[in-house]
Write a protein that binds this DNA or RNA. Structure first.
Lengths: 122, 122
DNA sequence: GCTTGCCTTCACACTGATGTGAACGTTCGA
DNA sequence: TCGAACGTTCACATCAGTGTGAAGGCAAGC
């Protein structure tokens, strides 16, 4: 599929699809005419990228974890390529994500508590 | 307390403390000499701001929710000031935070599952 | 009083994520 | 065959968050 179709199917401007490629998040093939050729999986990849960006991750973090996020249950990267260093790095990313979750959940709870405390009285 | 002390106590450069004020996140008093005068609560506020920024929120979102995040249990803003519109807005912020949490948790789980699936074999 | 260190504002600069447009080649249907 | 719709690269612009430095006022100790 060409960039325009991917853009329509994901709702993401072509500008950003090219940007994600420049950031090493997408790796489309190239046709003889230089056009980008995306596979079906790109749709899910782009949605994944958007979700993570909207959740506040940087392209750098996304680039680091994206290869391990492929499908719901499929495991793309074989264990052979996972050095202990990579595993440790991955774990540290997991930890950072967990910190964010904790911070967000804590503050969500505060906001919810505030609303709950105030709403009955209104 | 003056800006230098707040900076030391929070580890946040004075430049950023001034920026946060410009963004309407901090509201220090001013001494006769023009110096900013922060209260004790500013320390917690700054840490709160940092945590939320690090969690990927924009200053805009933080500005919207910060007044309702004051302390662990204290409720600063009286219910009288909470119009239904504000409450709805607040709820929508809570929802957005929840979406982020969901997305992050989902991907944390994927990463963790990947590590778990691969590590025993190494 | 003078030095040292704090404070002030102003301003220029960088990065990351994104918008926008120019200038130009390709594909395809009427 | 020609125009519309699509693709390409390049480049400049914006916003948020942040670094850094200049130019100058205030404060506190020696």
């Amino acid at each position: 599929m060409k960039i325009g179709e991917l853009s329509r199917r994901t709702g993401v401007p072509t500008r950003l699809l090219r940007y994600y490629e420049e950031q090493d998040l997408l790796h489309p093939e190239r046709g003889g005419n230089g056009y980008r050729a995306y596979g079906e999986a790109a749709v899910r990849d782009v949605q994944q990228i958007r979700g993570l960006l909207d959740s506040g991750l940087t392209t750098e973090m996304i680039r680091a974890i994206l290869p391990y996020l492929s499908g719901p249950d499929e495991i793309l990267l074989p264990a052979e390529h996972l050095t202990p260093e990579t595993a440790a790095l991955l774990q540290s990313h997991i930890d950072r994500i967990q910190s964010r979750i904790d911070c967000l959940a804590r503050n969500r709870d505060r906001l919810t508590a505030y609303l709950a405390a105030v709403r009955p009285g209104t």
